[in-house]
Amino acid sequence: MDPFVVLVLCLSCLLLLSIWRQSSGRGKLPPGPTPLPVIGNILQIDIKDVSKSLTNLSKIYGPVFTLYFGLERMVVLHGYEVVKEALIDLGEEFSGRGHFPLAERANRGFGIVFSNGKRWKEIRRFSLMTLRNFGMGKRSIEDRVQEEARCLVEELRKTKASPCDPTFILGCAPCNVICSIIFQKRFDYKDQQFLNLMEKLNENIRIVSTPWIQICNNFPTIIDYFPGTHNKLLKNLAFMESDILEKVKEHQESMDINNPRDFIDCFLIKMEKEKQNQQSEFTIENLVITAADLLGAGTETTSTTLRYALLLLLKHPEVTAKVQEEIERVIGRNRSPCMQDRGHMPYTDAVVHEVQRYIDLIPTSLPHAVTCDVKFRNYLIPKGTTILTSLTSVLHDNKEFPNPEMFDPRHFLDEGGNFKKSNYFMPFSAGKRICVGEGLARMELFLFLTFILQNFNLKSLIDPKDLDTTPVVNGFASVPPFYQLCFIPV
């Protein structure tokens, strides 16, 4: 058959498939802009700032609406009420993970971030239990974070109060905490193996944040037939998995079943207990991918939040002064901060919360999916439909947070200066898919920041009023603009 005829037939089939998918069930789905064949609503979305586009569309179609990214149908949730109703009140029905062709290629359905069903539930339950087990290797997770915080302070001392970009050092600290939990080992910041790991993690975040990856996920045929950065992403992930597998083999040879040292040991012990169960989800494949998931999810998000926190503290020296006064009063100079201190430091706690609220790190979270046909607000959402959640619409709700575009710790303080919780605080998402490392991340943010401010004054290279804190939105995360500062020993 003539190649031209084959091409026309293929394009015609794709067009018909697109029209059929977009028209099927439209009477039951939430409203939304009319999609174009094949490309859907992509032309109506700013790929570099999806969150802003969703906010604009919500003003037209309401808090629940339908979009098509290519052939992929998505239902968008915008605003606290619908997000709570879906992710919390109907948590089980909305607990699936959205379709990610690239991740599915890399992870093969294993791990904790992109798995679904029984596998996801069992691996998540085990990971939560293990991360909360403060007795691994007779050292609590808090001990590990405190140790890394001391190392971080010593690295900052080496800058000798000269101007520096904190990106690298602030990236090393949370990565080392995860390494300590998974591998029972922290690395020197100049260790070549550690630097290679950091390089792969950072490069992957840069790649994932590009519009090209959005295109690959919406048109998965590209993955096999086109060159691009997605190939580098898959190569980096394969490198990390190979490295983790080597460490798993080392653990198998040296493990003491009665004295687990780290996450890998705990997983291997669980595998041993379930070795007679042919349906067990505790396999080497799941261990390797879960460890890679924890490394990827637990490094860049925390380091970016820390980097943004220091920029905001530079911009608002009056806030920094209040935090340091609270540190001096509650902790002093002669001991290290600990998590028990947080309950006695409402202002510092409010500042950490406000940093996370203000920066809105992951504006749309990772997409969910419905696990069955769901009736939601008089609409029928078919099983498997991807759910896109606007966390921006919750964290920047102007009824809950007056002047949401302003950095103001009073958003989390009552009139008496006591810490005030808010149900709208969802930087880790909400419901059954809430970030498994939430507790660890909150511990790291509090301890790293208090250790830094206990030991250093922060000095800006320019007038604080002239510092730009506008986030650089890159399609996946909101990151701070480049800046330098000086760490002046107190």
Rank of each mutant, 00 (worst) to 15 (best):
326 E>W: 02
409 P>F: 03
312 L>T: 05
241 E>C: 15
86 A>R: 01
60 I>P: 04
95 S>T: 07
316 H>K: 07
184 Q>F: 11
344 H>K: 13
353 H>L: 02
364 T>N: 15
187 F>T: 05
195 L>M: 04
351 V>S: 03
311 L>Q: 04
52 K>P: 04
475 G>F: 15
35 P>I: 05
262 D>Y: 00
353 H>F: 05
276 Q>C: 13
264 I>P: 00
395 L>A: 03
164 C>G: 05
64 V>G: 01
125 R>C: 04
414 D>P: 02
88 I>D: 11
419 F>P: 05
365 S>N: 15
177 V>M: 05
233 L>T: 05
435 C>E: 01
265 D>K: 02
96 G>L: 08
421 K>Y: 10
48 K>P: 05
107 N>R: 08
422 S>W: 01
163 P>N: 08
58 S>K: 06
279 Q>K: 14
225 Y>M: 10
293 D>C: 05
156 L>P: 00
483 Y>G: 04
125 R>A: 13
289 I>G: 11
168 F>L: 13
249 K>T: 10
424 Y>S: 02
476 F>K: 07
274 E>K: 07
176 N>T: 01
361 L>T: 06
393 S>T: 02
397 D>Q: 03
282 F>G: 01
60 I>T: 14
28 K>S: 10
94 F>I: 03
109 G>K: 14
12 S>C: 14
341 D>P: 00
259 N>A: 10
118 K>M: 10
351 V>E: 00
384 G>I: 00
489 P>K: 05
269 I>C: 10
80 Y>P: 07
13 C>I: 15
70 G>E: 00
189 Y>L: 07
388 L>W: 10
355 V>F: 05
215 I>S: 04
360 D>C: 09
168 F>T: 12
59 K>V: 08
143 D>W: 10
266 C>N: 11
439 G>H: 15
46 D>N: 15
352 V>R: 01
145 V>H: 02
480 P>Q: 07
405 E>D: 15
307 R>D: 04
261 R>P: 03
346 P>A: 07
266 C>V: 12
306 L>N: 01
132 R>E: 14
141 I>R: 04
255 M>C: 12
298 G>Q: 01
165 D>K: 03
402 P>M: 15
415 E>P: 08
